[in-house]
Write a protein that binds this DNA or RNA. Structure first.
Lengths: 211, 211
DNA sequence: GGGAGAATTGACCAATTGGTCAAACTTATC
DNA sequence: GATAAGTTTGACCAATTGGTCAATTCTCCC
């Protein structure tokens, strides 16, 4: 009975609490098994409710999956906004990498859902990739190109630089299991993670800053 | 009827041809759906044989999955050997990154199987991670540390540098779908891929080389 | 406290799952 | 061409799948 987030009889007592419990359980199960591998029975079990009750809140497995992926998408858009063109290149890049790393750390499950969605061909977020993400990348590429022409960054193809950033932040979420195995069975401590984050920022900045 | 790899009646005619067809189909299906999401029926269908015949060659889904993951592991070990300590740091790192990028390009499905295995907690390759991979990383970290103390590389924690490399090469395989969406619906051309590879090598080298 | 709507749930369903099996078919050997 | 071994396959099975439904319980308002 921690003083914190425990209302009377766990969070299953209210409608929203239940919906949230289903949602969180679904995130975990989808992240671990992908859409096809996930079962509504397992999700219901982890949420601590009967399966029929889950289908009362989310009529189909697909609807539940959509709700989950749309939530991940929203988080992605928030982190995207941290790439600020008004700042100097070093600041903008450092801030953006930092924000994405923090996001991977705070919500690895979200990253994994994204990854498994891409793995199976992005049937749900495909539209988003082709519209919003394309637009985002185009506008950011323009900014980076400007910085290059101003001599602030080394000549390069901007998109492959973004891939480098996305790859890394994704890795810290998706490959947590591998990192744990390589870290004496322990997850990265807060200090280790901060070291890693700083090193990623430093390495990539040295890699693209001019001078 | 291409003159190439088509024996008399497709490759299903011989025992090895059949086994190979099952194996390849299994790789694709496991990569796309993960272990749980994959079905033996789908694998058999893609291999072009009845399901019962699949179970004649591989008695269980698990056995087939093991065969597939062990094959991926072998490829990993081969690429690992391209990190050569006798070379100068720049050469060793460039060669290693190049080899891993080429591997991601040549066998994206292998990378995806690896990723989905890690995502579900590495139940099959867990042993390998804790033994062989730990040893590999330790010995390579020692080499990198030596280079750092010789003033050839910038001070850093070597393992996070390897994570940067692994993340990137993994990304080019696992997120091909995302890259296609961002590339007007086309996969990276050979030229684009070579540009990306060169840029990754240059950026990371600038990021860690001293001077 | 009674009635209406919302929420909960065990029992159930058709379809799909991994896997079995016996019967048929090939292939090599004598 | 007989026989034995290896291979192929449709039919089948119990368990699990996503989802339904009617019966029950809860909640709120009068």
């Amino acid at each position: 009975m921690t003083a914190e987030t425990a209302p009377r009889s766990s969070r299953l007592s209210t409608r929203e609490g239940r919906e949230r419990a289903i949602f969180d359980a679904a995130r975990a199960v989808f992240a671990e098994y992908g859409f096809k591998g996930a079962t509504t029975a397992e999700i219901a079990k982890r949420a601590g409710i009967p399966k029929a009750n889950l289908h009362y809140y989310f009529p189909t497995k697909e609807a539940l999956y959509r709700a989950v992926t749309e939530d991940v998408l929203t988080a992605w858009l928030e982190a995207a906004s941290s790439f600020d063109e008004t700042a100097d290149p070093a600041g903008a890049i450092a801030t953006y990498i930092g924000a994405k790393m923090d996001m991977a750390r705070a919500d690895p499950i979200g990253s994994r859902i994204w990854a498994s969605e891409i793995l199976r061909g992005a049937p749900v977020i495909g539209d988003f990739l082709e519209t919003t993400l394309v637009d985002w990348l185009n506008s950011r590429e323009a900014i980076v190109r400007r910085w290059i022409s101003e001599g602030k960054l080394v000549p390069m193809e901007p998109r492959y630089f973004f891939y480098l950033i996305w790859a890394t932040t994704q890795h810290y979420a998706d490959f947590e299991g591998q990192m744990v195995a390589l870290n004496r069975g322990q997850p990265l401590s807060e200090a280790q993670f901060e070291t890693a984050k700083a090193q990623v920022i430093e390495t990539l900045l040295r890699g693209v800053l001019r001078g």
